[in-house]
């Protein structure tokens, strides 16, 4: 109940930010595009023609492939652009609520400090989940109804995207609590997103390194930090029903998220405001 109030309040606060309005608008646009631009006419039962964005598509193309393709584009777009926007829009949520005058009030409520932080965190995850599933859910329904291809992998991809956000936001929460600066937390998180593909390809640059130490350091960073590139690949493979070689990157990334949130709440619990 009391926790819910914090989640609701955070949700509202995020909605009050322009970025989420833009996100929402963009999602609506994509949904409308699918709703009106994608035509599927079934002629004589057996033969069907699909016109995509006004252009007719050869029946030889497998319908399933096309649907998977479209859904992959949406999922990957969300995984990159959507995450980028969501992190940006929620970056100041933690530092803002730690400001004098507002955190005092929250602590004076009959809530443990852990609940306060968790409520804030869950509120941010809730707004992102809402936005992601607004796009994923509706476009899934539209595409499925129109084509008859019901791809549940696409919904799972939505879950992966929210999960990835939750992992990265745990890091933002940790940085927010320790450094109390939204832009700084954002920079670090973006840096991790940016360097993730490089860390994955670290073998390729081992030769360039001057000593073994740097190799170990890269190894450590790869294993410790969230593996967003691989999470992105998993997301795409879920949509396309491809074989996922290993869930380990997802598990270790989750572990990183849990660790960050635990550290954030430990620090938050002991802090003077």
């Amino acid at each position: 109940m009391k926790l819910l109030a914090i989640i609701q309040l955070t949700f509202r606060e995020s909605l009050a930010r322009k970025t989420f309005i833009a996100f929402f608008g963009l999602s609506t646009l994509v949904n409308l595009l699918f709703l009106f631009a994608l035509n599927l006419d079934i002629v004589d039962g057996a033969e069907s023609y699909i016109s995509l964005f006004g252009k007719e598509i050869d029946q030889a193309f497998e319908l399933e492939k096309i649907v998977y393709g479209i859904e992959s584009v949406v999922a990957v777009g969300l995984f990159t652009g959507g995450l980028f926007m969501s992190l940006f829009a929620t970056s100041s949520l933690i530092p803002a609520f730690l400001e004098k005058g507002s955190i005092d009030l929250l602590i004076s409520k009959p809530l443990s400090r852990f609940t306060i932080l968790a409520g804030r965190y869950l509120g941010a995850v809730a707004i992102v989940a809402f936005n992601v599933f607004y796009l994923v859910g509706f476009s899934w329904l539209i595409l499925s109804f129109k084509t008859g291809v019901w791809n549940f992998g696409f919904l799972l991809a939505g879950v992966m995207i929210v999960l990835t956000y939750a992992i990265l936001y745990a890091l933002m929460a940790f940085l927010g609590v320790t450094i109390r600066s939204g832009p700084f937390s954002l920079m670090i998180t973006y840096a991790i997103l940016f360097f993730s593909p490089l860390l994955l390809q670290r073998e390729a640059i081992y030769a360039l390194l001057s000593g073994k130490f740097w190799g170990y350091l890269l190894d450590f960073l790869y294993h410790f930090l969230p593996k967003t590139t691989e999470l992105g690949n998993i997301t795409r493979m879920l949509v396309q029903h491809a074989e996922i070689a290993s869930w380990l990157p997802a598990l270790t990334s989750l572990l990183f998220g849990a660790l960050m949130f635990a550290a954030a709440s430990m620090i938050f619990k002991r802090k003077d405001f």
Binding site: K100, D104, S108
Partner: peptide, 17 residues
């Protein structure tokens, strides 16, 4: 924090969203 449900607080320079 249990007693806080029976406490009211007006903070110095309080701010609401």
């Amino acid at each position: 924090a249990g007693a806080h449900s029976r406490v009211g607080y007006l903070a110095e320079n309080h701010r609401f969203p």
